[in-house]
């Protein structure tokens, strides 16, 4: 930005753009992508490439032939939607399902509302929830990490049945509903350090907590996101589950378990912080985050689904216009009126 522009203030532009931010988030997702490829092998590669390609192609086709405006596929937003969608899908999902998910994410989630900047709901999550409700069997068939890696290296696993397994959260949910004591369930679950590095069944990109935190730190340092949304979501989940654990230690899993399993970190760092679908003010972001945290824990513990992050984010997305209407930051120079006696 060397040229002087004649315009109303502000006159100094930092060079920030949609493109720069989108590619920033994609870079931040790379560690998690690497981890998912490491744990789930070729399946993760196939899911990611299909989803990203399909999203970009659908965005191009819709912009060119339906909306008839200039295609903007290189701003990275469609690729980011595809990447986030892939991270929310189980690896080895049939390719045609991934393509339907991409079409729903881009077509219904984003372009129906007028494209980037106009969508009220996070497109990747719209795609994911659509698939979860439409194809419940395929969407909850999770490959277990290590064995699918062995498969990748050409070693046939001895027990074929073990190539798919439940996620820690669904093991917990089933155990509790069948009345098994919590200590017994805990033995079936991976240890916390295993969870931290992603050694569990689950969606492609949400397993490795370490990689997601690394990406989150990058986003914070580059000032692509602020701390408000991730911290309020994670804080709420921790406080809520700690309280439940204190009330009934036999029935509920602890905060660390809830934080490291499922999509809490992926959702808190990468999905809820989407600019378009989150509140504008910092105070609003805190309310948004607390809402997501509360709904997530409610669904996980009292709902019928084992995991609730994607539903929680979509529900709170719906509240964003309301939050923005009532939480307005004080304008510069505004005087708060004092009440007259």
């Amino acid at each position: 930005m060397n040229t002087l522009t004649v315009s109303p203030s502000p006159h100094v532009h930092s060079g920030d753009s949609v493109k720069k931010n989108m590619y920033g988030v994609i870079i931040a997702l790379l560690p998690a992508l690497a981890a998912s490829i490491f744990y789930f092998g070729i399946g993760a590669v196939v899911v990611t490439i299909t989803s990203v390609l399909a999203c970009v192609v659908f965005e191009y086709l819709i912009q060119k032939y339906l909306l008839k405006n200039k295609p903007s596929i290189f701003d990275g937003s469609a690729a980011l939607t595809g990447l986030l969608l892939a991270f929310n899908l189980p690896t080895y999902l049939p390719i045609w399902i991934i393509i339907i998910g991409s079409l729903v994410a881009i077509g219904i989630g984003k372009m129906s509302f007028g494209g980037l900047g106009n969508n009220p709901f996070n497109p990747a999550l719209v795609g994911r929830v659509f698939l979860l409700i439409s194809f419940p069997v395929q969407m909850t068939t999770w490959p277990t990490p290590i064995i699918s890696r062995l498969h990748y290296f050409g070693i046939t696993p001895e027990i074929l049945d073990a190539t798919t397994g439940a996620t820690p959260l669904s093991i917990l949910k089933e155990g509790v509903s069948n009345g098994v004591a919590n200590a017994e369930i805990m033995q079936q679950l991976p240890s916390l350090s295993e969870l931290f590095f992603g050694l569990m069944g689950g969606s492609a990109g949400e397993s490795a907590a370490a990689a997601l935190i690394l990406g989150g730190l990058y986003l914070l340092i580059k000032k692509i996101i602020t701390w408000h949304i991730p911290v309020s979501i994670i804080g709420t989940v921790v406080i809520f589950t700690t309280l439940l654990k204190l009330i009934h230690p036999d029935l509920y899993a602890g905060p660390a378990f809830h934080l490291l399993t499922g999509g809490v970190l992926l959702g808190a760092i990468f999905m809820a912080t989407d600019y378009v679908t989150s509140p504008m003010s910092h105070k609003g972001m805190l309310i948004f985050g607390i809402g997501i945290g509360v709904i997530t824990v409610l669904i996980r513990i009292f709902g019928s689904f084992p995991e609730g992050v994607s539903f929680a984010i979509l529900i709170m997305n719906g509240f964003v216009p309301l939050i923005d209407k009532y939480i307005k930051p004080k304008r510069f120079g505004e005087v708060i009126k004092t009440q007259k006696a």
Binding site: W96, I108, I133, S134
Partner: peptide, 19 residues
């Protein structure tokens, strides 16, 4: 097996009617 179950459920009604 290839059907999208969501269209038989309530959310699918809203989506289909909208389009």
């Amino acid at each position: 097996d290839y059907g999208m179950l969501v269209f038989v459920l309530a959310p699918g009604a809203f989506i289909a009617l909208g389009y």
